[in-house]
């Protein structure tokens, strides 16, 4: 296994180098101005010049994204527990969850500001709305995934409903819940930035990345806008990495997705 370690890092480095080369070539070929298509070098220069602003903004966005993500995780689990309780609850409630999911957040943004208030509460609400659905769907599926013979065994051995939930259904649902969290982790920073853009500046802004997009756009600081995008990506990666770590920590002892092939 060890001698093939290059396969992990070499292909992405090569593909990255190729893309950057293509970018420079495209700029040279088209002769576009820096404020329309900045080169990677100009973007990094802008990122360096603005790094204090960008870091402060990223910190603000991280707070909103984390808040919304945690609310989505807890509420998603709670909703899944209700849906997993009985079929009539699923048929009765699922259509309304779809309605919430299908309604574009941008349409309800004014209502969110009205109800949750501008600034952080509104941003957390937008983040929650954008990221809770995959958690609900995956976790509900997981709660229903306990195998029939296992359920028979619990029934036969006199398990209470609470024991069945605690010792069988919740652990069965864990990999599904974590899969939902992984999707939500990619959505939460996007949701927070979107929220800052939509409702964050209603009170003069919270200084998040979403608000910076608005500021740099007005100032036509296009390389800085690209640098903001880059910072957003990095924030997203941190979220995904954290959830991937959690997934590993909770599952690697027993779950087949961490099967070692060297046994």
């Amino acid at each position: 296994m060890k001698r093939r370690a290059w396969i992990v890092w070499l292909p992405p480095v090569l593909s990255g180098a190729f893309l950057i080369a293509l970018w420079y070539a495209g700029r040279a070929a088209t002769g576009l101005q820096s404020w329309i298509l900045p080169t990677p070098g100009e973007i990094f220069q802008a990122a360096w010049n603005e790094h204090a602003t960008l870091l402060r903004a990223a910190g603000g966005t991280a707070v909103g994204a984390l808040g919304g993500f945690l609310v989505a995780a807890l509420a998603g689990l709670a909703i899944a527990l209700v849906l997993g309780g009985a079929r009539w609850l699923r048929t009765g409630l699922y259509p309304w969850l779809l309605v919430v999911q299908m309604t574009p957040v941008i349409v309800v943004a004014p209502i969110i500001v009205l109800w949750a208030g501008p600034g952080l509460p509104g941003i957390i609400t937008v983040t929650f709305l954008i990221s809770f659905f995959p958690i609900v769907v995956n976790t509900t599926q997981g709660l229903l995934s306990a195998e029939a013979p296992m359920v028979d065994l619990f029934r036969m051995y006199g398990a209470t409903r609470w024991q069945e939930l605690q010792l069988l259904r919740l652990p069965s649902a864990m990999p599904y819940f974590l899969a939902g969290l992984r999707i939500a982790a990619t959505l939460a920073p996007i949701g927070a930035i979107f929220g800052e853009y939509l409702v964050g500046n209603a009170s003069g802004g919270t200084g998040g990345l979403g608000f910076l997009v608005y500021v740099y756009n007005t100032q036509i600081k296009i390389p800085a806008l690209f640098a903001t995008a880059l910072t957003s990506c990095l924030l997203g990666f941190i979220f995904v990495a954290a959830v991937s770590w959690l997934n590993w920590a909770l599952l690697h002892h027993w779950h087949d997705s961490f099967e070692r092939h060297d046994r």
Binding site: E147, P149, L153, Y157, G158, L167, W254
Partner: peptide
């Protein structure tokens, strides 16, 4: 009851699985 499949809970160790009926009691 012993089923055709071992029907062990994958997140519990061998000892944890053996303990399960006692835990339910």
């Amino acid at each position: 009851f012993v089923f055709q499949e071992a029907t062990l809970l994958p997140w519990l160790t061998a000892a944890g699985n053996v303990e399960l009926p006692l835990r339910l009691r």
